[in-house]
Nucleic acid binder design. Structure first.
Lengths: 151, 151
DNA sequence: CTTGAAAAGATTCTGTA
DNA sequence: TACAGAATCTTTTCAAG
């Protein structure tokens, strides 16, 4: 994981369809050397997957919401984690510091579906307390790290 | 934007390096028909970019935090938006409902850098009030929508 | 949209340091 | 072990129906 690996990863994050020759030119290596590095980055887990960044609204997921959860520990933390891992509406789940135990990012078709989702959480008795923030608009959403020299 | 376009987008989200022939077989089209659909999805903005999902910790961004912001409107909302759009540590910025005006997702090397980032927000007089939640661990983080039939 | 050919690109192999 | 360059093989792109 040297500076060249970071540069290659950044270039791919920006545009994963760049050719190996182009990337090679940018970092000063041959296409085959770049290919070998990408293979290693992928198998070592630095690159988790090649994917596309899609417009969720166009795919029918018009609502993004954040749900702050104070877990009811009677229901069990493992059960909660299993639930969110399997639930297709849960885009993210973070264990966080502060007054809340978990913070969920949810992508869902509409407000009715959001209400149904919160109903599911309640039905499973996961919630001691919760608070939902709906994203009215999104000013920034980057799946990648913009170019910046961090050595 | 029919069902086939959705399926193609989902397949690419899962693995953007699948060949056009493979995708074509999955959706019952020829490789060139799939190619043309992907071209249209890309130019129409449904697919925003081809990218890689990377391990941020391996790239030196070990800390993920969420900053809830009650904006000081004296500083100006446009200035705030411009600041977060340009700041490389800001992964997301959502305008949200509830007691806070904005919610930021920040990726940063360490806690010292997080403190410096909060200092920047203060120096620009953006904060009337704020609250920071640090992600201790992340149970789920999907940049894509898992397969599920939503018609 | 399909097929089939041409072009571009990815992968593998070999030699070198 | 890491690379460059060449050979091969795959994939994409283009033209025609």
């Amino acid at each position: 994981m040297d500076i060249i690996d970071k540069k290659i990863t950044a270039l791919l994050a920006e545009d994963a369809r760049r050719s190996l020759a182009d990337i090679g030119e940018a970092v000063g290596l041959s296409a085959s050397a770049v290919n070998e590095r990408i293979r290693r980055l992928t198998t070592s887990g630095v690159i988790r997957r090649f994917t596309v960044d899609a417009d969720h609204a166009a795919l029918g997921l018009g609502v993004t919401a954040f749900v702050l959860v104070a877990l009811d520990y009677e229901a069990g933390e493992p059960a909660f984690k299993a639930f969110v891992a399997q639930h297709p509406s849960v885009a993210e789940c973070h264990h966080v510091t502060g007054g809340w135990s978990y913070m969920l990012k949810v992508r869902i078709p509409d407000l009715a579906a959001l209400e149904a989702f919160l109903g599911e959480l309640k039905a499973h008795r996961f919630l001691a307390r919760s608070e939902t923030m709906i994203a009215l608009s999104t000013a920034v959403e980057r799946g990648f790290t913009p170019a910046e020299e961090r050595s």
